[in-house]
Computed example of a mutant assay.
Amino acid sequence: MATTSDLKTGNIIRYNDDLCEVIEYQHINPGNWRAFVRLRLKSLKTGRVVEDRVRAGSEIDLVRVDRRAMQLSYRDGDDFVFMDPETFEQIMVTKAMMGDKARFLRENDSAFVVMEGENLLSVDLPTFVVLKVAETMNAIRGDTATNVTKAATLETGGIITVPSFVNQGDSLKIDTRTGDYIERVK
């Protein structure tokens, strides 16, 4: 059994009968009191972030997960079918499990599928993706002097906020964690 000294950011642990990813941890030793570890955990099932404190040196249940690179083969209604490019094994992922990340995913794009044994835990996209703007409004003359933004529809159907100088057909680098525009790509 692992202890709190074995924790690292990104580890998956079993906490209150739920699988959680360690977002942040901090070992605190407050003078002559007992040391403790402050944890920020993200539930893989609900996506909720929980903060808690545990005694330093206490046992934790580290979960061994398999993280595989897979490709999105096609969409089957609201579901997504991912395929392992080496073994050609296919996995069906529901729209609910994909969540908001689905708006940045095209067919044949790569993603990381996180599994515990045969149980699918989550699907992680690359940190940055490059997508084309399918539709956006034209900028109004004079609006470029200030930080004016507008909505843009991507080739995947997702909608993000972009600066006013972005035009239809431009390729954009997007942060998939936050959904923010990063830069225009040539």
Rank of each mutant, 00 (worst) to 15 (best):
A2V: 05
T3W: 10
S5C: 03
K8G: 04
T9M: 11
G10V: 00
N11S: 06
R14V: 03
Y15Q: 06
D17P: 02
D18I: 06
V22E: 11
I23L: 15
Q26F: 04
H27L: 09
H27Q: 05
N29G: 10
N29V: 07
P30F: 00
W33D: 13
W33I: 00
F36P: 02
V37N: 07
R38K: 15
L39W: 04
R40C: 08
K45C: 07
T46E: 08
T46Q: 01
E51K: 10
E51T: 08
V54P: 09
L62S: 01
L62P: 03
V65T: 15
D66T: 13
D66M: 10
R67F: 04
R68M: 05
R68Y: 00
M70N: 11
Y74S: 01
R75D: 07
D76A: 12
D76H: 10
D78G: 06
D79R: 03
F80C: 04
F80D: 06
F80T: 04
V81G: 03
V81T: 08
F82S: 04
M83K: 12
M83Q: 11
D84Q: 08
E89D: 10
E89M: 02
Q90H: 07
I91W: 01
I91D: 03
I91S: 05
M92R: 15
K95E: 14
K95N: 14
A96F: 07
M97E: 13
G99Q: 11
G99W: 09
D100E: 11
K101N: 05
K101C: 02
A102Q: 15
R103N: 02
R103C: 09
F104E: 10
L105P: 02
E107H: 06
N108T: 11
N108W: 11
D109E: 14
D109Q: 08
S110Q: 10
A111Y: 01
A111W: 05
V114P: 02
M115G: 00
M115R: 13
E116D: 13
N119D: 14
V123R: 01
D124N: 07
D124T: 09
F128T: 05
V130F: 03
V133C: 14
T136C: 14
M137I: 10
N138R: 08
A139K: 12
I140N: 03
D143G: 13
T144Q: 12
A145F: 06
T146P: 01
V148H: 05
V148Q: 09
A152Q: 08
T153M: 12
E155Q: 08
T156R: 09
S164E: 11
F165Q: 06
V166D: 02
V166E: 10
N167C: 13
N167Q: 13
N167A: 12
Q168I: 05
S171R: 14
S171N: 13
S171W: 04
L172G: 05
I174M: 03
D175C: 08
R177M: 07
D180K: 10
D180Y: 08
Y181V: 09
Y181D: 03
V185G: 00
K186Y: 02
K186G: 13
